[in-house]
């Protein structure tokens, strides 16, 4: 499973944010937690909580095109 953070969801990924620990916990549990690099830059999120990886939106497309993948947008 991959949790791909876009738009304002990346605000919670900032190191020290109230819910950032939840994302780090997910990463430790084996979930790939990815944050849209453009959204991070757009919001000047420079430091991410541990376990969260920045990435381009092209990765979201690649994931969506991977066989047996369901994309659920929340």
């Amino acid at each position: 499973m991959t949790l791909f953070l876009v738009q304002n969801a990346v605000l919670a990924a900032r190191e020290g944010a109230s819910h950032a620990g939840g994302y780090s916990d997910l990463a430790r549990a084996g979930v790939a937690v990815v944050a849209d690099a453009f959204a991070l830059r757009e919001r000047a999120v420079d430091r991410l909580a541990s376990g969260i990886e920045p990435s381009g939106i092209d990765r979201l497309v690649s994931l969506a095109l991977t066989p047996q993948t369901r994309v659920i947008w929340h």
Partner: peptide, 18 residues
Amino acid sequence: SATTATALRIIDAALRQA
């Protein structure tokens, strides 16, 4: 909505892959 630009970015990226 912020989804407009995100959606178009996805479509842009998809046109380079699919």
